[in-house]
Design a protein around this nucleic acid. Sequence first.
DNA 1: ACAAAAAATGTAAACGGTTACATTTGTGAA
DNA 2: TTCACAAATGTAACCGTTTACATTTTTTGT
Lengths: 353, 353
Amino acid sequence: MVATIRDVAKLANVSVATVSRYVNGTRKVRGKTAERVKFAIEELGFRPNAVGRSLSTSTTKSIGMVIPSISNPVFSDAVSGVSAAIRKEGYSLTLTTSQYSPEGEVDAISTLLENRVDGVILTVTDPETSKALELLEKSAVPFVMIYNQPSSGRATMTVDNVAAGKEVAGELIKLGHKRLGMVSGKFASSDRALARMNGFVKGVRDARLTAPVICEVDFEAQDISDVLEPMFKDMNAAPSALFCSNDILAISVIGALRRLKIAVPKEVSVIGFDGIAVGRHMYPTLATVVQPSKEMGKAAARNLFERLAGGQDPQSVILPHEFTIGESAGPAAKHDPTDLQTQSKPTSKRSPT
Amino acid sequence: MVATIRDVAKLANVSVATVSRYVNGTRKVRGKTAERVKFAIEELGFRPNAVGRSLSTSTTKSIGMVIPSISNPVFSDAVSGVSAAIRKEGYSLTLTTSQYSPEGEVDAISTLLENRVDGVILTVTDPETSKALELLEKSAVPFVMIYNQPSSGRATMTVDNVAAGKEVAGELIKLGHKRLGMVSGKFASSDRALARMNGFVKGVRDARLTAPVICEVDFEAQDISDVLEPMFKDMNAAPSALFCSNDILAISVIGALRRLKIAVPKEVSVIGFDGIAVGRHMYPTLATVVQPSKEMGKAAARNLFERLAGGQDPQSVILPHEFTIGESAGPAAKHDPTDLQTQSKPTSKRSPT
DNA sequence: ACAAAAAATGTAAACGGTTACATTTGTGAA
DNA sequence: TTCACAAATGTAACCGTTTACATTTTTTGT
C-alpha cells in the first residue's frame, strides 16, 4: 500500500539503514547515494511511519494533555500554549477531557499511558486524592499539573490562588464594599476555587468584616438566576460585591443579575478569575484576576522537555497573576432609602421603602 | 522496564497469544488460564502498548484534527463534539492548529500522516487551493472538513452560510435598517466568511437597498476601533446595523462601539455568527446565527467511522442553523436631528445637528 | 474407554522503523 | 602503488503486538 523504508531502499539500491540515516540525518550519506535516496523517496511519496519509529526508539514524540473541559476558554488558552511549545520541539498533542470527574481522569490517563505518550500535562479535580496521579507516578511518565495547587511535592504550574483571592477581597474593600459574597464552582471539583475562596475569606476576615456569603454552584447544570434570586431578595442584606471563581461564571452572574434588574457595577460589583479574552472585549469589561494560562501551558511543556532531556527533578512554579480592574467592579452603592435613585427600575423584589 | 506481553505470558505460564486473546477478548480463554493471566497482568501492572498494537494492526485508533486556532470557542465546541464522539469508539484525538495559514495546514497534515491517524477532521482556509487537502487525498486517509464550504465533491459538515447570511440581511431589514454593513475576518482565510458575505449582500440587494459597506479586518492583529471609527464619523451615513462574520468579532465590535460612545443596539445593531456560549450570557445578549458546532464535530466523527467501517462514499452534510435574536440587535434608529434624544452622549464625532 | 470433533493454546512471522556491529569503499601518505 | 585509516554502507536483531496456522487438550457421542 503505502511505501515503507524497504521500498525506498530497494528503489534507491541501498540498505534500509542508509535510508534511515538519510531521513533522520543521523549520519552522513554520500552525495551520489543521497540523491538516489531522495529521488526514491519522492517517487514513492515515502513518509516515515511514526509508529514503527516509536516502537523502535520507545519514544512517541507526543505529549498527552488532560483538561476538565475544553469549553472553558481558560483551558483552551492553556492548550494553545502547550500546543505552541511542543510543536516547536516536533512533538504532537493528544488531547483528552475528564469532564471534571475523577473517573474521567483515570480513563484519560489510561488511554494516554497505553499510547505511551512521553509526558503528560494535566489538571485534576483534587491532587490529594487523585487516582490518576497515582497511575502516572506508578508509570514513571513525567507529568506536570497546571492550575492545580501545589501538593505532595508534585510539579504544578499555577498562580498563587490564595494570595489572589485575598487580593480580590482587598480591592473590593478598598472600593467601599462591606458585604461581600462569592459564587464558586463546586469546591470538590476544583482545588483552585477552594484556594481562591480561602484567600478571599481570609482577606475579608482580616478587614474585620462579616464573613462573605459563599455560594457553591454546579455551573454546568444549574441556572445561576435561581441561585442569585434569593440572595438578592433584600438588597439591604445582599452582598454589594461578588467574587466569582472563574470568568465564565462571572459573565453568567452578570447576565443573571441583569435579568434580575440589578445593575452591574452600580448596585453589585462582580469580579472574575482567569482573564479570558472575551472578558476584555465585552461590556462591561470584566474585572478579574488574570492568570497567564498560555504561559502556564508553555512552562509546563518546557518543564517536561527539560526532564525528558536531562533529568531534573520535577519542580513547581508559581507564575505571576495580575488583578485587573474592569467596568464590572466599582464603588459600593449606598443601600439606604436613597437607593431608589439608582438607574435600574426598583422592583417588588427590592427592600421596601 | 515496563512489562510487556511476554513478561505476562512468562509469569502466567502461557503463550503471548493467549495473553493477547485474553486482553482483547478475541477468543475464549479457559477460566483457569484466564485467572492466571489476570493475576499476572495485575502483578506486573501490564498495560498493552498501543504502539506495538498499531504497528501490528496498522490502525492507530486515533483521529487527527486540524483547526485554525483553538482560541475561538467555536472551534473548541467542535473539538468537544469530536472528542466526545471518538471517545465512545475508543479512539483518541491528536489536535493540531494551523494558525489560519496554508503552510500551517500542510505541516499539521504532514504530522498527522506520519502518525498514521486513521482519519482526519479539519477546517482549512480555502478548500479550492488547499495543498493540505491534496496531501490527504494522495494519502488515502479518510477525512472530513467542518465549517468549510462544500467544494470539489469533498465531504464537509457545515451550515448553509449563504442562506444564513441572506437571512441576517432579511432580519435587519425587517427591523427597519436601511444602511447595512459587514465586518468580517479576512475572506482569504475563511471561505465561510466569504459565503456569509455573499448571502448578506444578496439579501440586501434583493431588498433594493444600497449595497452594504464591507469591512475586512485582520482580527488577530488590528484594533477594531481603528477600523470602526472612520466608519461612524458621520452617523447619518454610517450603517445602522453591522453583521459580523463571527461572534468573537461581534463581541469585539460591540465593545469598540461602546468605546466610541455608540449605543448597541439603540444606535447600531450588531449580529454575529456561530452561537458561542458566552454570547448568550453576556449583556447585551448577542443576536447571532447559531450553528451546531458540537454536532458538526460529532457528525464529522461519525462520518469518518462509517467510512472506516464499511466503505461509504464521502458525503457532505448541511446542518441546520438558527438565527437567534438577542439584545444586540433592535429596530433601526432614526438618524434625523431628533437623534440627540438617544441615551448616549452626543460627541463631536457625530453628525452636526 | 475411545475416536472424532471442538475448543483452547502455542509457534513464529509479520508490522516499519533504528542501530550496534560488520563490511566495504574511499582517501592520503609514503 | 600500497597500506592504514576513515568514511560510508550493509546486515540483522530488536522494539511489542497480532494472528494464521499448527498443535494440544477437552468434550462429546457411543
